[in-house]
Design a protein around this nucleic acid. Structure first.
Length: 424
RNA sequence: GGAUGGGUGGCAGAGUGGUCGAAUGCACCAGUCUUGAAAACUGGCGUACGUUUGCGCGUACCGUGGGUUCGAAUCCCACCCCAUCCGCCA
């Protein structure tokens, strides 16, 4: 969320930002309610001060009559205070709800518009393959090499679940190993994270569990939810904590399963691994000081490029347009890999996404840092980025590396873990 | 899951109804002393919100949420977490 004071003092900026993102917000209502809230706050504090003063006189009073009068006065003041406080709390709740609907500010370079307005920034080192045969999609390749079992997945867990088999398992593990080894060498602390998290943590990151259109699976009769990404558990690690500036930037890479209901995606359902209810992902996450986050964001994007260059997958880098940014994101880059088997003649498909969330998540999660020698604290900035989502990375590798006979070349960096240079 | 003991400022640790935002020690910062350092001494040292041009003042916060009371770190209830023991278990 944004800072309440900032919203009130910069109403025009916030309003314009919402317009640019195609989001409606009620800034005037917030300003109105907050003015009311302030008068209630001041009233409650003043009544409480009077009540405190009255209470302090009671032990000093000599006779019972004076004492009783003071007790009555104190009781009356507390009741008045409670009323003012309740009014304040209710307003605060209303305001918080309105504020949480306001998205983050937007980086000035972000293109305005929707999905089709994203700007292509660059291409990866690997060229789009020129097949002299009809390329197969990953589902067909999987059948040929006995890599997946979607039927058993559906039988056991329902549509959208799958089994990996044989080389696909090795490939899946190899991608995890490669990503974590690579990032550990880049200053990221490897973390294996919980796959369930408490509702307030999800909300702090910006997810809305248990809503009608939620992407999140929740566990009945508990406050737990299956995580949609390790971003949730990595960001949550410091929830409510105040750290020192010397600890920033703090770079983490988390390994987790990711669970998504894909509610509302029925029409977009595709065959195979592209859109599934469970997958495995290595996620980068960073807490930084405010003046570090832009550079850190570029770095995350470039690390994603290095990873997919190493995987020998053709891709393009996209600067996502305003309408396509999530609420917490200040700016978002996506890597879209070329998937020759997607659509009729191949399509770009999203394989990574990195967002700079500035202090939007940190404010809601209450992640702060203290600068040595300075009074007070500041909210940290948070950033996240996909290193490898193994399912989608596998699609890109299988489809781009297929040979005319259907065999699949294993990228060099994965060969030590896959145990061969060719599948099939 | 059961039993017991705990959760207080950066850390350790007092505090069982009123003047306690909280003793004391350590750590930290500034100063005195010293050629310098150490020691010693003196002073300072939480966060958030509100208010003020400013010094400052006010309110809240002693695991979390409720309750009792004029008044709660202190009493009551629920929950969470930690430690130890028992049970169970990959």
């Amino acid at each position: 969320m944004l800072d309440r004071k900032f919203i009130i003092q910069n109403a025009e900026i916030v309003r314009d930002n919402c317009t640019r993102r195609g989001v409606t917000c009620e800034i005037d209502r917030i300003i109105e309610l907050d003015a009311e809230r302030l008068t209630k706050l001041q009233l409650a504090e003043d009544l409480n001060r009077q009540a405190n003063e009255t209470s302090q006189q009671i032990p000093k009073s000599k006779d019972d009559a004076a004492r009783k009068a003071l007790i009555d006065k104190g009781r009356d003041l507390r009741h008045q205070k409670d009323a003012a406080q309740n009014a304040h709390d209710q307003l605060e709740g209303e305001i918080a709800e309105l504020i949480s609907a306001i998205p983050n500010l937007t980086h000035p370079d972000v293109p305005t518009g929707g999905e089709e307005d994203a700007v292509e920034i660059s291409l990866g080192k690997t060229p789009i393959p020129n097949f002299d045969f009809e390329p197969r999609n990953h589902v067909e390749l999987g059948e040929q090499h006995d890599l997946f079992d979607f039927e058993a997945g559906a039988r056991v867990s329902g549509a959208g679940f799958y089994y990996l088999k044989n080389a696909a398992v090795r490939l899946d593990l190899a991608l995890q190993q490669f990503a974590i080894s690579f990032l550990a060498g880049q200053g990221f602390t490897p973390i294996s994270t919980p796959d369930l998290a408490l509702t307030p943590i999800l909300q702090g990151i910006g997810f809305t569990p248990r809503g009608p259109e939620t992407q999140i699976y929740s566990v009945e009769n508990t406050d737990l939810n299956l995580v949609g990404t390790a971003e949730i558990t990595l960001g949550g690690m410091l929830a409510g904590q105040t750290i020192t500036d010397a600890e920033l930037p703090m770079r983490l890479c988390g390994l987790s399963h990711c669970f998504r209901t894909e509610a509302g995606a029925a029409g977009r359902a595709t065959k195979g691994l592209y859109r599934v209810h469970q997958f495995t992902k290595v996620e980068m996450f960073a807490f930084t000081k405010p003046d570090q986050s832009d550079a850190e964001h570029i770095r995350m994007r470039d690390l994603e490029c290095e990873i997919f260059d190493a995987l020998e997958v053709p891709y393009r880098v996209i600067d996502t347009a305003t309408g396509d940014l999530g609420g917490p994101a200040y700016r978002k880059f996506d890597l879209e890999a070329w998937m020759p088997g997607r659509g009729d003649e191949g399509q770009w498909g999203e394989v990574t996404s990195t967002s700079n969330c500035t202090d939007y998540q940190a404010r809601r999660l209450n992640v702060r840092f203290k600068t040595t020698g300075k009074k007070g604290t500041q909210f940290a900035h948070t950033l996240n980025g996909t290193a490898v989502a193994t399912g989608r990375a596998m699609i890109a590798i299988l489809e781009n590396h297929q040979q005319s006979d259907g065999r699949i070349a294993v990228p060099k960096v994965l060969q030590p873990w896959v145990g061969c240079d060719m599948i099939g």
